[in-house]
Design a protein around this nucleic acid. Structure first.
Lengths: 346, 346
DNA sequence: GCTGTTCTTGGAAACGTTTCCACGATTGAG
DNA sequence: CTCAATCGTGGAAACGTTTCCAAGAACAGC
């Protein structure tokens, strides 16, 4: 534990640059930060020394003095989920272009990791925070978030006092459900994500709305939120299919769950679209190339990531101005393939 | 540009804690860092104040003084590639547990972004670096890397002076190729990643070796490295199928490319396994659920990420000791499904 | 030629920690 | 009982920047 005196760094400091150039430290700083009131000759002389020594400013020292870390936190439940990784990828590209570095914190749905990451955000004085869909029921976390006082953008989640960027999951859920109802389906199962994340609640809302507008009742037993990553979709579908009033159509998430649903169909000897209709949410290779190809609700993940990053950067730059916290919605798009049909006559 | 004097921080500093507890700053630091030689009473008194004020040390100040940023850089070409995101996910989990934060830098195959990220690593004095498969032909980058003098681990890539963690792509390529040769195939196409990344070169080496051991010549026209993310696989396969001596089997990457290959088969009116055999590298939902299901070469991505992170942490802790730079290999596993058959008699 | 402005530069004080050093108090050995 | 070692604590010097302030130089207006 006991550490020795830090060995003097081998790397040149701004003082070395100043000494070699025969100027003051403050002049070097001014030149490096492109401030006005520096003569061209000074600039040239300093930059020559900077290049020769390969000087690179120590960002911790900069952060300490200037109170800006050029760092953006990115909290996501699970970066290996392709939905998230595509959004994070686009966001990171945008941030990188603006000179920021992205600090990743994967929470894996555990509140302790969420609060731990918030603590890291505070200690490292990050300049902003990107929050991806997460559990709304985590109270310790949301209260920690509320006291954070940091530019923040929610992606597919609400953050009090901050704008959010979202796909129109409600509209998408509505469109898909209405389409199936229009085909004649009356018992439509909805397998979606965890009940406490925004895309799921919105989707369910759209699903309800479509039923209501058609004068149909909603059987909540058909709505099956899934806990994270577990293979529960398989048994859920089996249970529904073997129940007294099986669904005639299934709406499911495309990633992580579609495969389980198809397995469940197969092991019950059921085929789509003849025996049952199938729509998935989130386009994947599997949806496109399954035989028959599966109709899909999709939206632009990269665009969401980009917009979120841009919105956050605006807020970081404008400081306390620009308190427009209205959510930004992106449309979903329904791609018709060959996985749906009218329900069988009894 | 001209900034005003930084507003005095509202957040408590170690000095505030010391004052409120009526002790010296150094005592607070010692208690917080769990050093020996601190009395229990002092510990209790200080911790009480720390909790009351909600004190959190400023990590930039810590980094400046103690020369440790508790930060690990992670350079990856494209985080939206599921192969990478799964490895990064596992690595991040391991690093998080050890108290480190992961800084993500996606390079998108551009050398300028690679060197820019190395510069960020230096300026931020990161404690270690995880390098995921990248282009070996980028000379500016590799030379920048060589002068970095930082604990580093390569994942599916070689890094001079550093250990690497790799799947046995050569062995996997060998096994698959030998299997197809055993079925009687003599013209086997290999669609793999960019020529300059390690998994591809190793795979091709295994492919060659299998041919050589069977006394067969390798037709290099059948080996098709793919540039990143482009849909070139489709046209490559079409060209091969329509050529004078079409392949009787195809080995392709599972992510990003398998779908294109299947499209190419379809648009040439060709079916697997009857007309052509198909194996993919990297298991996916599509490979599992395509009809017929596709035989696959797979390996444990999460395990690679975990091992890489652990290896890096060891090196970070041990400083300059432990200069064992031997690569760590993980086995691949060939999963037989129903996509291969003996070639048709002419 | 004098009196404000505006440029250009240098000096020095922060930013918030950790760690070295010093010093008195305790403890243990002989 | 003395001397040395150890323990517990405080003071102060770093770490490497940015930015305030001051001061001289150049320049304009009268």
């Amino acid at each position: 534990m006991a550490r020795t005196q830090p060995t003097p760094s081998l790397r040149p400091t701004i003082r070395d640059v100043a000494a070699q150039a025969g100027v003051s430290v403050s002049s070097v700083s001014r030149v490096l930060n492109r401030e006005p009131h520096t003569s061209p000759e000074l600039h040239a002389r300093i930059m020559r020394v900077v290049d020769r020594l390969g000087f690179e400013p120590h960002s911790a020292a900069q952060a300490l003095r200037s109170r800006a870390s050029n760092t953006i936190g990115c909290m996501v439940s699970d970066i290996s989920n392709p939905l998230y990784s595509e959004m994070v990828n686009a966001a990171e590209e945008e941030l990188q272009r603006a000179g920021y570095v992205l600090m990743l914190g994967a929470t894996r749905h555990a509140e302790e990791r969420e609060t731990a990451f918030i603590s890291a955000v505070r200690r490292r004085r990050m300049d902003g925070l990107l929050l991806f869909a997460g559990d709304n029921t985590h109270k310790d976390f949301t209260s920690a978030l509320a006291t954070l006082d940091l530019p923040c953008v929610g992606i597919d989640r609400e953050v009090p006092g901050a704008p959010s960027v979202r796909a129109d999951h409600r509209g998408g859920g509505f469109e898909v459900t209405r389409y199936l109802i229009g085909l004649g389906h009356r018992r439509i199962a909805l397998l979606t994500g965890p009940a406490a994340v925004l895309p799921s609640t919105e989707r369910v809302a759209g699903y309800r709305q479509a039923h209501i507008e058609s004068g149909l009742d909603v059987d909540l037993d058909l709505v099956r939120p899934q806990v994270h990553g577990s293979g529960i979709a398989f048994s859920d579908v089996c249970q529904l299919l073997q129940g007294p009033a099986p669904p005639t159509a299934v709406i499911t998430l495309g990633t992580h769950m579609l495969a389980s649903v198809m397995d469940a169909f197969a092991s019950n000897g059921i085929r789509y679209p003849s025996d049952i209709s199938l729509v998935c949410i989130g386009d994947t290779d599997l949806a496109r190339h399954a035989t028959p190809a599966i109709s899909t609700l999709t939206w632009d993940l990269s665009e969401i990531g980009r917009i979120a990053a841009k919105t956050l950067l605006e807020r970081v730059r404008d400081g306390d101005q620009a308190q427009d916290t209205r959510p930004i919605y992106l449309p979903t798009r329904f791609i018709l393939r060959h996985s749906c049909a009218e329900p069988r006559a009894k």
